[in-house]
């Protein structure tokens, strides 16, 4: 039954995933010097002086595209079913709510992390080919990108919680998402990994406890 639930979640997330993947391909193409719009700009491509993952725009693109996917996916997986009343179909199946929502979250986190991990892998592999970038490449340079991969699922969970949590109007429902954004922003600004990790763990713990509470007590 978990397999059936996971396949359903993957099918329902396929559209958003495809959109984010296309965006990521576009962004990576740009980072690799393949500008699909170069013909519109007279074919001129500025010489690339950036160092992969260090001072290029990978983190910006990843934050926008994978972060966007995290928000959209979190809201869709939780609020979309409520809007279509399909929770009445799903939640009466002989399986606990924790399993239903746990499967949703595992699939969502997997998709968010997978997209970013694949992007890091492809870009890192390309950057490691001698001559592609005007600087030597070490995999340790991807450290900041992996920090992002650790933080973005928290954004996803914040969006999931916003979709799940009842609220009088949409603005107040988004409070968890806004709170998680602020938390992730401060955690990312911390220069010490020994502080960054506990801050994230605390964030994950708080959001998961809140999700668990609303899963068990909300009206559907």
């Amino acid at each position: 039954m978990i397999k059936a639930l996971a396949i359903k979640e993957l099918r329902e997330s396929a559209g958003l995933m495809a959109l984010a993947s296309l965006g990521m391909v576009w962004a990576l193409a740009g980072l690799m010097g393949v500008n699909p719009l170069r013909y519109l700009s007279g074919g001129y491509v500025a010489p690339d002086q950036s160092i992969a993952f260090v001072n290029d725009s990978f983190a910006t693109w990843a934050s926008v595209l994978v972060g966007g996917l995290a928000v959209a996916l979190g809201l869709k997986q939780s609020a979309w079913e409520r809007g279509r009343d399909t929770y009445y179909f799903l939640l009466w199946r002989p399986v606990s709510r924790r399993v239903v929502f746990g499967t949703k979250i595992i699939v969502g986190v997997f998709l968010v992390v997978a997209l970013l991990a694949v992007a890091i892998g492809i870009y890192g592999w390309w950057a490691s080919i001698p001559g592609k970038k005007p600087a030597p490449f070490e995999w340790s340079m991807t450290f900041s990108a992996w920090k992002l991969a650790l933080a973005l699922p928290l954004i996803y969970l914040g969006a999931f919680l916003s979709g799940l949590r009842p609220g009088r109007w949409f603005g107040t429902r988004l409070i968890p998402l806004a709170g998680v954004f602020v938390w992730v922003f401060f955690a990312s600004a911390v220069p010490y990994i020994w502080l960054f990790i506990p801050m994230l763990v605390l964030g994950y713990f708080g959001v998961l406890v809140a999700i668990s509470y609303f899963v068990e007590t909300s009206d559907f």
Partner: peptide, 13 residues
């Protein structure tokens, strides 16, 4: 126990 909710909600896709 079986339950059919109002409007017969199903996954349209």
């Amino acid at each position: 126990i079986a339950y059919i909710a109002e409007g017969h909600p199903l996954y349209n896709w």
